[in-house]
Amino acid sequence: MKLGRLNHIGVATPSIADSVAYYREVMGATSITEAFDLPEQGVKVCFVDTPGHDGTAGTQVELIEPLGPDSTLAGFLAKNPLGGQHHVCFEVPDIEAARAHFEGLGKRILGPTRIGAHGTPIFFLHPRDMMGQLTEIMETPKGAH
């Protein structure tokens, strides 16, 4: 298994609308996707695009808001009411090979492989096995890079 590109940093927020305003007004972001619901994950999502140094797409900031009190993200915001960094996401060419790699190392995978916000398979690794950081592993979208 080889570490792929850092695709995005997930940022939990109590209000995507307020966070979008912040990224536009304070950070000067000009490319932000429309928010959409991911009910199977209990969140609303949108992406802030950042430019790469060579003019290509850079790393995205994924803004995530809970869809309700039963969302696991609601628990995160209960402990961090202002929001904050939730996870990092790395791309891999083959999600099943990556899953087998991490399982072979004894890393705890949180739930089954499922389809994530980019429409590709993902899984999460337990923070206690990843230096304290919730880590998302995502199959590189077809046609990307």
Rank of each mutant, 00 (worst) to 15 (best):
K2W: 07
L3W: 03
G4T: 06
G4Q: 00
R5Q: 00
R5C: 02
N7T: 12
N7D: 15
I9F: 10
I9M: 13
G10A: 15
G10M: 06
G10T: 05
V11H: 03
A12F: 02
A12G: 02
T13F: 02
T13L: 01
P14K: 12
S15I: 11
S15K: 07
I16L: 13
I16N: 12
A17C: 07
D18N: 12
S19N: 03
Y23V: 04
R24Q: 15
G28W: 02
G28T: 07
G28I: 08
A29M: 02
A29G: 01
T30W: 07
I32H: 07
T33N: 08
A35C: 08
F36C: 14
F36Q: 09
D37A: 12
G42K: 08
G42M: 12
V43Q: 09
K44C: 13
V45H: 09
C46P: 03
F47M: 05
D49K: 15
T50C: 06
T50N: 11
H53C: 07
H53F: 11
D54K: 11
G55I: 05
T56Y: 08
T56H: 14
A57W: 01
G58K: 00
T59K: 01
V61L: 06
V61N: 04
E62R: 05
L63R: 00
I64E: 00
E65A: 03
L67H: 09
L67F: 11
D70A: 14
D70C: 10
T72C: 05
L73Q: 07
A74T: 15
G75V: 06
F76Y: 15
F76P: 02
F76R: 04
A78W: 01
K79L: 09
K79R: 15
K79M: 14
N80C: 06
N80D: 08
L82G: 09
G83E: 03
Q85K: 12
Q85L: 11
Q85S: 10
H86R: 13
H86C: 11
H87S: 06
V88R: 08
V88A: 10
F90G: 09
F90N: 08
E91S: 06
V92Y: 03
D94G: 08
D94R: 10
E96A: 13
A97Y: 06
A98W: 15
A98N: 12
A98Y: 15
A98M: 11
R99W: 13
H101T: 04
H101G: 01
H101R: 02
F102I: 07
F102Q: 01
E103W: 06
G104Y: 09
G104N: 09
L105I: 11
L105Y: 07
G106T: 08
K107W: 05
K107I: 10
G111H: 03
R114C: 08
R114G: 05
I115C: 09
G116C: 05
A117P: 01
A117M: 04
G119W: 00
P121D: 13
P121A: 10
F123Q: 03
L125H: 05
L125N: 04
H126S: 12
P127H: 14
P127A: 15
R128H: 15
D129Q: 07
M130I: 12
M131V: 10
T135V: 02
T135P: 08
E136M: 04
E136R: 03
I137C: 03
M138N: 00
T140E: 02
P141Y: 03
G143W: 12
A144S: 10
H145S: 12
H145L: 14
